[in-house]
Design a protein around this nucleic acid. Structure first.
Length: 232
DNA sequence: ACATTAACACCAC
DNA sequence: GTGGTGTTAATGT
């Protein structure tokens, strides 16, 4: 009873054997987008371990307090994940997450759902790892600047890397939106807001950048690299 | 030398 | 009125 090739049932091609491309955005698409004004606390203390957050618009900062002073631990841009410590056992309870741009949007997902999703999705897993490694790199870069550079150069180096990462190219210039206040730049660079203002003004008077309350424009990236001391 | 803090004026929302 | 920006004098390390 041999069955001819022709008599075999044709393979059903309804669902191609390709994995659905699950990414962070599709995972979070079911969670409603939450719109927040600047300065809103997203979580603090123990509340920070119940959800994983995806930034969909604007900027969020993560910080802790040390004798009344704010210590910025990390900051997150659009498309980045807050709370990858779900892998780690020593959970920190001293962290505060707060929006730092005028109009910030986030989506949140319970950690349980997040853990489940990772289980059967290698692609998502890969995206999580990328997110964690980006965060690590960002933090190491800040530490490096803090150790090696003076306050003026820390501001310039931050501006440079942020432009390359988040700047939108328009002609020969780069637009940075949302704008970061001088105070926030100071916090990121580990310096005071007055120093940040002074450095920004210096760059503006040299025609390297332009800024107002809603955006920053880098007019001359090469010149910015030059004052940063990257190219000689 | 390098930075921070405090203080004050100005401006935008 | 609050918060962001611009500037400078006093102070700290």
């Amino acid at each position: 009873m041999t069955i001819g090739i022709q008599s075999e049932p044709a393979p059903i091609m309804v669902m191609p054997p390709v994995f659905k491309r699950t990414s962070l955005s599709t995972l979070f698409v079911q969670s409603p987008e939450i719109s927040l004004k600047k300065g809103k606390v997203i979580f603090s203390g123990h509340n920070g371990h119940q959800h994983v957050y995806l930034v969909t618009k604007g900027m969020v900062k993560l910080y802790s307090y040390h004798d009344g002073k704010e210590m910025m631990e990390d900051y997150f841009l659009k498309g980045e994940l807050i709370n990858c410590h779900i892998f780690s056992t020593n959970e920190r309870t001293d962290l505060v997450a707060e929006t730092m741009s005028q109009s910030t949007c986030i989506r949140k997902l319970p950690v349980q759902s997040f853990r489940q999703a990772i289980e059967h999705d290698p692609l998502l897993y890969k995206e999580i790892l990328t997110s964690i490694s980006n965060s690590l790199e960002r933090t190491q870069e800040r530490l490096r600047r803090l150790t090696l550079l003076d306050s003026r150069k820390r501001i310039i180096h931050f501006l440079l890397s942020h432009t390359k990462k988040a700047g939108r190219r328009v002609g020969y210039e780069f637009v940075i939106k949302p704008a970061i206040t001088h105070k926030e730049m100071g916090t990121i660079a580990g310096t005071s807001r007055q120093t940040a203002t002074t450095v920004l003004n210096e760059l503006r008077s040299k025609g390297i950048i332009h800024f107002n309350r809603s955006y920053i424009i880098v007019r001359n990236l090469e010149a910015l690299e030059a004052v940063a001391g990257i190219k000689s």
